[in-house]
Amino acid sequence: MVWLMLAARAWADDTPATADDEETTAPAATGDDVVPLPVAGFAIRPVGGPAAVTLDTLFIVGGTGGTQIATVAARAPRGDWQFGAAVPLAAYRAPSSHEVGVGNLGADLWHRGRRVDWGLEGRLALGAPAWTWGYAAPDVWPGTGLAVAVQSSQEAGPVTLLGRAAFGIYGTPDVPPFPGTYGRLDGAFAVDWSPVARAGLVGELAWAGWDPTPVDATLGLRALPIDGVQLRAAAWMPLSLWAGGGPYGDVTAGFHELGLSASLTLGR
């Protein structure tokens, strides 16, 4: 991870800072001079801020759970642009065993604007696939595709409003419940509230179709214990599954599973 962060930092350092950079990489509403890691949701990606590396873990617990996903991600700014890469590793249940596989390589390119950021989000299936899924359909289940995304944030005192919309096309092996080649339209809205300087509450509501869990909500905490370090913890709630909609058709409505997420971001 240190190597990743140094590489991202070195890449970012190649471009001298400009007045425009300073304007577009404004710090989050932390209230003092802590490292300005950007405010983000969960479907809504972090765009802006310094080069950073994130280790994210997701445990899906409950009767229909049993999937754990660890993702290593790095991002680096260069002028108005930001390049990011991520690799998820997943442990999951098979009928008679527990398996481990590699999710899809994520490669994102974002352009930072004054009001709206737009990006390209690529996914590339690697070897040793993981036949399961987590937050979003394109991340783990083997598939390759590209999406165009727009995001925006609006800061009002201690509250930051964030939004996202994206559309992508993905190709997967023809293995149900994934529909082979599919288009995916997704949108999310999040509110970040920072009542104190180094901590905040984040709530997000996201919708996506096609996705095995089309509607979900996330509620999380974030903290900046020291400069350049951000901790996040969240509960991911697949609302559509709870309401009785599953990828195999309707299921009994109920509290089937819950995602518990924790992440560590190091930025400088």
């Binding site: 098979a94 419940p177 195999y248």
Partner: peptide
Amino acid sequence: PPVQLARGPVL
């Protein structure tokens, strides 16, 4: 009959 997993391929 196959045991269908909640987060896996359709069996």
